[in-house]
Nucleic acid binder design. Structure first.
Lengths: 347, 347
DNA sequence: TCAAGATTTGCAAGCGCTTGCAAAATGAGA
DNA sequence: TCTCATTTTGCAAGCGCTTGCAAATCTTGA
């Protein structure tokens, strides 16, 4: 009696559906898997499934068919807005594909990623998304060798080809700097990201090239090494502002750094953008919520997540698809934190 | 030949281990599951497992044994630091328990949660953690009825008992207000959270009680309804600051709101805490990184995640354990955003 | 040393599904 | 209308594991 509660379609299997639809259980399976089944039977099966409230048992499908309909997502941390945005994109795409998401964070131990990779690829997931992976070399080789579907998000710097999705960091650095130059700035400070990462290096390179192209010499004292985090950016901004000839604009390598710089500026009683313009990078949700709203180089984070997921699925479906690196375009988002340098700021 | 690559311990099953250890496959299974096995055999099996690089197939275990060693985590959004922190706690605890985490975000569709719950509880996960669930009533009943292990994190307001972990929101509101009063503030503005949530109401109630206990009348004009988000808090702070008698301190119902208020204050050229003190709630990582560093009521978010996970496991292991609500203590974290009101601010 | 109980072990069945194979049903061409 | 090629269908096996049951082994006390 406790069995067939309408609230709990507990134990309904393909056999139940088959009986109800008056077909064999393999026909039900074929309907589920979209194999050739005559239209009328398919109808009957579908109806029976919904009437009974059938829900496939993923474990069983996976065990029998070798597909789990789960993909793994490896990130460092969830508390960083940046990761959250990417995860959001992944999640959206997955929902559309009827896949589930297994989440792993690795912020604790260093070697953890490797262990997870082994675990996951063994079974459990059909593919792996690695967001900004650290010491990836150790397991990337394994993944490739096993021909296990995987895509890196926002990663650069491995010497061999690896499927990945990123943004046009160099171009973003270039465009941002160019924008500042067009506004009339000549002394443009730059707070770098964590320079062990390719994206940080590319952004800096874009900045330098834009200056050069505009005939402005690259001044190393205007470049301060940050780490993508707020406290260090705060320090950097102070260093830049303490310069004998402080910059009239500061280009931070990510939004979080920009926030740090904004605080430093305001702590000194200076105004944004009146005294100093601030330009960020990322366009995390918060950047539109601060005051003044942050002008920034938009990295389509959620879309990167989505694109990476799609790419992953091409590998899941055709393991021999060529290794691709997709770069999504960055874009300048003008808000309120930049303006032409004022006479006083130039003084 | 491609088979037994040392890099890819692909198809090693308990049968392989059994052969290697010269025992029956069920003995291997028993070793894995910590059932009684004689010490020497257990030794042999363990050795064989590590030599062969055996990794259990979770799908199979789950299918056969009814346990998946996965728990589900349902959150709205990942981009909010708050959720990330809780997830971190969950994740840490899970890692220790050798469990995996299936992540579901529900920020898109409203009714999505219900659908997920059905899906998940069908098989797939052994338990469910629901963080700040919205229209929980719809499926909470189902979960309870099926006796499916679940714990809510930071939730209140359902009329029947439900296993949950939260923080002492009322006390936090009380303590924060008390602290401000002790500093000498009399006109203390309050920016509420989303008042549909129990935690927001409790914090407000704590604030009111603290005022009352101190003999300070509760002034409704000093209370402005926010929604836990930065833009609305910015607006609220401006409303409060526009008052004929503006507050000398503002207590925001979460850190994000506090950031919004800080911006509003600074946009007016006022200083924190010189002109206005700011007190937050949550103690998200960012609150220590802003300037001045935010004094706030710490909610042990990660620990709430950990505790909820532990509680969930008691239900997984003993389905009849009594329904508990655990409240973790909040704590005042003094940083730099509050001070005694100055003569000028009182003017 | 032996019997009786306690423990450990092995076998087989089965979890819910996919899929190769062969049989049945269908369609086309003559 | 009948045959042959084609599609659809059903059966059985098996994915890797857990677990009840009965047989084998060990332990203990007399």
């Amino acid at each position: 009696m406790a069995r067939k509660s309408p609230i709990a379609p507990q134990d309904i299997t393909i056999f139940d559906v088959a009986r109800e639809a008056n077909v064999s259980y393999s026909t039900v399976s074929r309907v589920i898997n979209n194999k050739g089944v005559r239209a009328d039977k398919r109808e009957r099966v579908l109806r029976a499934m919904s009437e009974l409230g059938y829900v496939a048992n993923l474990q069983a499908r996976s065990l029998a068919g070798g597909k789990s309909n789960i993909i793994g997502l490896l990130v460092h941390s969830l508390t960083v807005e940046y990761f959250g945005e990417i995860a959001r994109g992944v999640d959206e795409e997955l929902a559309a594909l009827q896949y589930d998401l297994m989440l792993y964070t690795t912020h604790r131990r260093k070697g953890r990623e490797s262990a997870y990779v082994t675990r996951l690829t063994r079974n459990l997931v059909d593919g792996l998304l690695l967001v900004l992976p650290q010491n990836a070399e150790t397991y990337l080789e394994t993944l490739r060798h096993r021909r296990f579907p995987h895509v890196l998000v926002d990663h650069q710097g491995v010497d061999f080809d690896v499927p990945s999705v990123g943004a046009t960091n160099w171009q973003g650095g270039y465009d941002g700097t160019h924008y500042l130059i067009e506004l009339g700035h000549r002394r443009i400070g730059f707070i770098t990201g964590d320079m062990t990462m390719g994206c940080a290096r590319d952004r800096l390179a874009g900045y330098q090239q834009a200056l050069t192209d505009a005939g402005i010499p690259v001044n190393p004292t205007l470049i301060c090494e940050g780490d993508f985090l707020q406290p260090q950016a705060f320090i950097c901004a102070n260093v830049l502002l303490d310069l004998e000839q402080p910059p009239t604009a500061i280009f931070a390598s990510n939004d979080v750094s920009a926030f740090g710089a904004m605080e430093a500026i305001r702590t000194r009683g200076l105004h944004i953008p009146g005294d100093v313009s601030i330009l960020g990078f990322d366009d995390t949700p918060q950047s539109a919520q601060v005051h003044p709203a942050l002008t920034t180089i938009r990295q389509p984070l959620a879309e990167m997540g989505r694109t990476a997921t799609q790419l992953l699925f091409t590998y899941i479906n055709e393991p021999d698809a060529p290794i691709k690196r997709i770069e999504l375009p960055t874009k300048l988002v003008v808000r309120q934190s930049c303006q032409a340098p004022t006479v006083s700021s130039l003084a």
